[in-house]
């Protein structure tokens, strides 16, 4: 494996999100959804806060600690899901999961935006859980809210 492969993993846009995370912080709203998620094998942590109104994610923020992949993924995800319906956000999470596992996914179905840069993770199986941490947190928050 060469530096080329590393460059596939650590793309410029990923490192930009790591260095300048978007939506880092906490929401002010009282009725926000708050969910904590850990990666127990490595100690990465995220707290995700979502504002959902009429079945739509109107705002999203996160706090946490972790590697470049887990933190940039959270930054990109919060950008990508704002304005999506709950169902589309959950569907995007499925697409994302397929993408980072190297499975076929429909590129045109939803606009992944910067998130697509994480495709290179599929070459690094040990890092898939880093990439999916924020997404699992979102799934948990939205599924709990549905019930």
């Amino acid at each position: 494996m060469s530096l080329n492969n590393l460059d596939q993993l650590y793309r410029q846009v990923i490192m930009d999100h790591y260095k300048n995370p978007r939506n880092r912080g906490e929401l002010d709203q009282d009725n926000k959804l708050v969910v904590n998620m850990n990666n127990p094998t490595c100690g990465d942590r995220i707290q995700l806060q979502l504002q959902v109104e009429d079945g739509k994610i109107t705002d999203a923020k996160f706090t946490g600690e972790g590697c470049s992949i887990s933190q940039s993924s959270a930054s990109m995800m919060t950008d990508a899901i704002k304005g999506l319906s709950v169902n589309d956000a959950l569907h995007m999470s499925e697409i994302f999961s397929d993408m980072v596992q190297g499975k076929d996914y429909d590129e045109d179905e939803l606009d992944l935006g910067d998130v697509e840069a994480l495709q290179g993770v599929c070459k690094f199986p040990a890092r898939i859980k880093c990439a999916t941490l924020a997404w699992k947190a979102m799934e948990k928050a939205l599924n709990e809210q549905k019930q």
Binding site: M1, S2, L3, N5, L6, L9, Y10, C42, D44, G66, C67, S68, I69, S70, F124, A126, R127, C130
Partner: peptide, 12 residues
């Protein structure tokens, strides 16, 4: 540099 990222680069 997060230790995960260190380990990934070393693994390559």
């Amino acid at each position: 540099v997060h230790p995960h990222d260190v380990a990934t680069v070393l693994d390559t």
